[in-house]
Structure formats: structure tokens, C-alpha cells
């Protein structure tokens, strides 16, 4: 009985202190984020993308500094999906950069002929790695296909960075191989 009263008090103490701690964290966290030049919006900006008929929200993670720089730019149309037929058309017409967003080992094992490797994880860590690419060029991102998200994430981010013509090929590597289209193994594009 004595113990249960003590436990009750303990639970009450923990709850109250947790609330205080939580409030402190919320207040300090929000104020710091508001003051910091690296602060981010409370809700991420996102682009709604249609993938296989279903809409998906793809967020854009930028701090306020990057966002302000970008907002002085221009309006860009949202990214959209390519099917294998259209991807092949882009491939044969030329003037398109295919970006393989999978890990580098996967790229080495085989990729769409001419594609360059930019793993999403590297790009997320350092978006400046795409600075050398021409912003007017047509870009198609792809990854493993079917349940792979990285091609969409990268397409949306590139689009927001000012690349004007970005598509994602959701069927990706899997459907490209199934369609028996040109591939290359090794480090060459």
C-alpha cells in the first residue's frame, strides 16, 4: 500500500516533469530554429507527384537561406513520370541525361547505357554535386523500379534547384532490362 502510494507520486512526478521538459524543448527548439539562418520551415514544402496514377507528396528539405535564394528564381513545372516507351524515346532522341540514383555498386553492376551515377544518399548530403550539370538539359532519373523512391526524390529536388526539364522513370532499371534495352556494366556511362 505504502509502495503503491509512492509509485503513484513517482508517476505523477515523472509526468509533470516530462511535461515541463517537453515544453522547454518545444519553446527553445522553435525559438532557435526561428533565429537560426539554417532554420527550416515547420512544415516542409512539398511537390505532389503522380506515380502510377497515385499522388504522392515529395518534400523538399531546404533551410531558409537556400529557400530565399531559390525563390528569386523562376516558376518551374512539376516533375512527371515517364514510362519505358517514353524513356526509350528520350534515349534515342538524344540530349537527355539519365541519372542513376542507386548506390554506386549497383551502378557498376549494370546501368542504362550513357547514364551517370549520382546516388541519392550522396546528393542529399551534398546537393552541389550537380552544379556542373546544365540546367536547361533534359534529365531523367531512375532507380531500381517498382518500389524505389529515390528517383522521385531526386527528380523533385533537382526541379526545385532550377533544373527545368526533369522526369523520373519509375519503372527504372528493372523495366529497362525487361524490355531488353541497351545497358552498360562497369564505371563507364
Amino acid at each position: 500500500m505504502v509502495l503503491s502510494i509512492t509509485m503513484k507520486q513517482m508517476v505523477k512526478t515523472i509526468l509533470l516533469r516530462s511535461i515541463w521538459l517537453g515544453l522547454g524543448v518545444i519553446v527553445i527548439g522553435l525559438i532557435f530554429n526561428w533565429l537560426s539562418p539554417n532554420g527550416i520551415p515547420l512544415v516542409a514544402k512539398y511537390q505532389t507527384v503522380t506515380v502510377r496514377g497515385k499522388s504522392q507528396k515529395i518534400p523538399l528539405f531546404m533551410n531558409r537561406k537556400a529557400q530565399t535564394n531559390q525563390e528569386t528564381g523562376f516558376e518551374i513545372s512539376p516533375v512527371s513520370e515517364l514510362d519505358t516507351e517514353k524513356a526509350w524515346q528520350f534515349f534515342t532522341n538524344g540530349g537527355t541525361i539519365f541519372i542513376d540514383t542507386r548506390e554506386y555498386e549497383d551502378y557498376l553492376a549494370g546501368h542504362i547505357a550513357g547514364a551517370i551515377s549520382i546516388p541519392l544518399s550522396e546528393f542529399q548530403n551534398d546537393p552541389t554535386i550537380v552544379e556542373e550539370l546544365d540546367r536547361q538539359v533534359r534529365i531523367v532519373t531512375y532507380c531500381d523500379g517498382s518500389d524505389c523512391q529515390s528517383s522521385i526524390d531526386m527528380a523533385v529536388r533537382l526541379n526545385e534547384m532550377g533544373f527545368e526539364q526533369v522526369w523520373f522513370y519509375f519503372g527504372g532499371w528493372k523495366e529497362w532490362v525487361e524490355a531488353d534495352l541497351p545497358i552498360v556494366k562497369g564505371s563507364k556511362p
Binding site: 524543448v25 518545444i26 527553445i28 527548439g29 522553435l30 532557435f32 530554429n33 537560426s36 539554417n38 532554420g39 527550416i40 520551415p41 515547420l42 512544415v43 516542409a44 512539398y46 507528396k57 515529395i58 518534400p59 528539405f61 531546404m62 533551410n63 537556400a66 542529399q124 548530403n125 523512391q149
Partner: peptide, 28 residues
């Protein structure tokens, strides 16, 4: 925080709307 937000998002458990606020508050 923008890099941590990407990490939180990549786990793909939170709705997009909650990712940034989580990335802001968890470190604190």
C-alpha cells in the same frame, strides 16, 4: 536541421507534414 530532416524522411514512417517539426525538436 535540413540534413536531419532528410534522415527523418528517409525512414518513411512519418507523414511529410510532421518531418520538419520532428527534425527541429528531437535534437533539443
Amino acid at each position: 536541421p535540413e540534413k536531419f530532416a532528410v534522415v527523418v524522411y528517409n525512414y518513411r514512417v512519418l507523414p511529410v507534414e510532421l518531418v520538419n517539426i520532428t527534425a527541429i525538436l528531437v535534437p533539443w
